[in-house]
Design a protein around this nucleic acid. Structure first.
Lengths: 229, 229
DNA sequence: GGTATCGCCATACCGGCGGTACGTACTCAA
DNA sequence: TTGAGTACGTACCGCCGGTATGGCGATACC
């Protein structure tokens, strides 16, 4: 009564070579991450105790500290899991789209869907920067969702035959990434997400239309308006 | 030796009616906020203990809990202080500017300066959402920096003679606010902030030029491109 | 002018939480 | 069979946010 059986054991005798311990180990690790994801989403990082996590996963702190160096490392694993799922969702949505403008809208819509997931909002957007720190937070973004936005921005920029160096492309991407994040947040927190989503599409579409107008006019990047003071 | 004198006392005899106790009280409260701002900036919210704060302010926890309901309330006071300073800086920068496009650039530059302050980056951007929670975080933004961006966006939209309802204007503002935040972050974390700032100005200026092109072309908001699927 | 009251703050203490030290059962290779 | 290493469980520590309580000086009131 004091301690429940850990889990259902696979009854089949394993082929020698793939040892069973490793399988059990992987399953407890997965259980920890899944329970942690749920609790972090529900109560936030600081609002979730390690005792609650290990209790939910039916293990003890010894197991947790065997697989992870600490609470932050466990959060990081959850973070990567959520980010990966989001990234795959967006990648799938824009795959095969050739027209850069269409690609932008499709990517935007996919991102809108992602940002409505509670685990993404809480783990990635809200707690991510504070827990991981900003530099580590950006490293993680860099190789997931950010890469999708970079892909889209590049195709748009190429449509304008603007040859930009790496830094300039990244600057554009960061700006659009921030814009989409804010847009997503406004949708996610809205009382009427559908209407809010429509407004965001209109607004982003409008900005894209402006860029398109510059493309059609054959505007050079050097010729953009500067402030003289 | 165990306890230092709290502070220099104002020697002047006070005018009756403004009691001295209230002055001392206000000064210790100010001291707490100032020390907390410094420590929160340096070590983050969770990395700063109340003991460190009260020790730095030469008071005890009793004083802290007399003025604030807890650690989060103290953070909130610091947050408001930093946000207010930022907001005033931007307001000052765009005051008197009539041309909406000039206003945008000026506001952008001012925001770039703000986002380079360590206290703003750490307290507002990094720790703010996690500590205050997102809804409270946005409430705070709403009546400070966000109001500045709203002002700028409104003047730009008016330049295009686009009459938008409140929600649509706010959507635009949120998007630009997010874009500027990301832009600022890319500048602040850059190894060469000056060059990064120039790139941001180029990119934002380019986007604004696109909107300007739509204005000059007399494009209606209804007529913006939609995706048909 | 004594005294009750209240604001301002110090001291001592508690419970919870992240982290650690150490023991143990089990597996696998030699 | 046995030594080594993996995968945990158990007990415990130190810190930190929060609370309870009391003292002390200023103010208000009679």
């Amino acid at each position: 009564m004091t301690k429940s059986a850990k889990s259902l054991l696979p009854k089949v005798p394993q082929v020698p070579g793939t040892n069973r311990r490793a399988q059990f180990s992987a399953s407890t690790k997965r259980a920890l991450v899944e329970v942690a994801e749920q609790l972090f989403t529900e109560h936030g990082y600081s609002g979730t105790s390690l005792d609650a996590i290990v209790s939910g996963a039916d293990v003890t702190k010894g197991a947790l500290y065997h697989h992870f160096s600490g609470k932050q490392a466990l959060f990081e694993a959850v973070f990567e899991r959520v980010e990966d799922a989001a990234s795959r969702h967006i990648t799938k949505a824009i795959r095969g789209e050739r027209d850069p403008w269409q690609k932008s809208i499709q990517g935007l819509r996919a991102f809108m869907e992602v940002v409505r997931r509670p685990e993404y909002r809480r783990v990635v957007i809200q707690d991510g920067p504070a827990v991981l720190g900003y530099e580590r937070y950006r490293e993680q973004e860099e190789r997931s969702t950010f890469a999708n936005v970079l892909d889209i921005v590049q195709s748009v920029l190429e449509a304008g035959h603007w040859e930009l160096d790496k830094e300039m492309t990244e600057t554009f991407t960061r700006i659009f990434f921030g814009a989409m994040g804010a847009a997503g947040e406004s949708v996610a927190t809205s009382a009427d997400p559908v209407a809010a989503g429509a407004r965001v599409e209109t607004a982003i579409g409008f900005i894209l239309a402006g860029l398109r107008a510059l493309v059609d006019a054959g505007v050079e990047l050097d010729g953009l308006p500067r402030t003289e003071d």
